[in-house]
Design a binder for these strands. Sequence first.
DNA 1: GTCTATAGGCCGATAGAC
DNA 2: GTCTATCGGCCTATAGAC
Lengths: 199, 199
Amino acid sequence: MSAAALNAGASERLIEATRELLWERGYVGTSPKAIQQAAGAGQGSMYHHFDGKQDLAAAAIRRSAAELRAAAERVLGGEGSAYARIEAYLLRERDVLRGCPVGRLTMDPEVIGDDTLRAPVDETIGWLRGRLAEIVQEGLDGGEFGGESGGPLDAGELAATIVATVQGGYVLARASGSPAAFDTAVRGLLALLAPRTAR
Amino acid sequence: MSAAALNAGASERLIEATRELLWERGYVGTSPKAIQQAAGAGQGSMYHHFDGKQDLAAAAIRRSAAELRAAAERVLGGEGSAYARIEAYLLRERDVLRGCPVGRLTMDPEVIGDDTLRAPVDETIGWLRGRLAEIVQEGLDGGEFGGESGGPLDAGELAATIVATVQGGYVLARASGSPAAFDTAVRGLLALLAPRTAR
DNA sequence: GTCTATAGGCCGATAGAC
DNA sequence: GTCTATCGGCCTATAGAC
């Protein structure tokens, strides 16, 4: 838990503890009891502040979604060419072996089966795809990506490929037990995207 | 469960039921009781054939791994150019919204934390990356992928990108609730890989 | 707000009869 | 091989005192 959360109110500590457990173990693998212990809060406290596990998880997921979005925008909204910003996004520091706190939840049947829990996940991934598509389109307009060969590149498609490579990179890394696999996949994508002049 | 499994012995039915439950709910979300009910087998039967949940899961994972490998090889070992075979692999029919029965397990902390359970997952993804790298190398040698521009494309990196796009494509699809997102990511990758002559 | 007590049911496993 | 009985413990709440 963050240093701030340790001195915060019980509600705040419960949300932070839930965020971490959801990230590590998913919704199915996270019990109220485990949350309470991690948050240093009793059962009564948890059920006073939240309606139950689902309600607390919804609050935690919404916060993780907002945080992912803010972190991505810090990089994507920066300076430089479209390629440079996408490169910065792909190469930004990540706790690779932990995976994506939002994407991870898509493998959980009880998240995907519950509209309240799935909505923030869907919106976050959707926003990221859209934001990347804008930037890719800038690059295409400026002839950055294969413009020289006049290929049929589509901004929405490339944005989906970028997000998928990141999400799948986590899978490769966790399978092998090493962050290197994530980096390898990202380097492959960057090589394909690299401005023709750089090849 | 498959039609064959329904008429098979209890051991066989238990493995098949476990495979399906692991695919849908992961290791943490799958209980012996649920397996027994799905397999139509009692507790005594399950504990007679297997040492417990972990042992049964190991058998199920090994089988899913072998099956994934065989399915991939059927496409990758086919006819055609390197690009054509990779395209066939990416476009092959998949139950997209179910995700990957092997890759899915990487998000499960109890699978990743157990060498017996993780090994077949790691080996399968590793094999797939290697197999794809061989084919990509063929394509690079034949000037199929951007060879014309003499870029620094690496077969191992591109293979990782291909596997990551597939694994991440499942995440996008499940987040949005539609297989279309998977196809979009794949089309983006294929456009980047497309022989220069085709652009 | 937080505590303790209580609830009915499932968890993963073991024992022993048949 | 499969069955039923039993186990201690956790699951997700709910109730009511403080």
